[in-house]
Amino acid sequence: MKPVDQMTWKDLNIGCVITEAGNAAQYKSGDWRSMRPVWDKDRCIQCGVCYIYCPDAAIYKTEDNYFEADLYYCKGCGICVKECITGAIRLVEEEE
């Protein structure tokens, strides 16, 4: 399927039915973000609370058992910052 902003009306199916399952994953909700979460590894205790609370399941575990946001999906909502027990996450302005 073409990216949505390149589709013409002729590319639509009857009733605008979507035949491809799970294609919401293509949607880049990261475009909504104005603030980005940044982890301070010195404070992080690897508890995974941020991973559990992220409403978009956009936080994943890194190879060294810390956590990071997948910026394709992260909307910068700040819930991880609020929930982090040790205050290891802060939001920084997106520069671009």
Binding site: V4, M7, W9, G15, C16, I18
Partner: peptide, 19 residues
């Protein structure tokens, strides 16, 4: 499985109405 009655953002709604 198919999705019926999906959401359309401003970048697609116009095309759905033309269709």
């Amino acid at each position: 499985p198919v999705t019926m009655g999906a959401f359309a953002m401003p970048d697609l709604y116009t095309e759905t109405k033309k269709y």
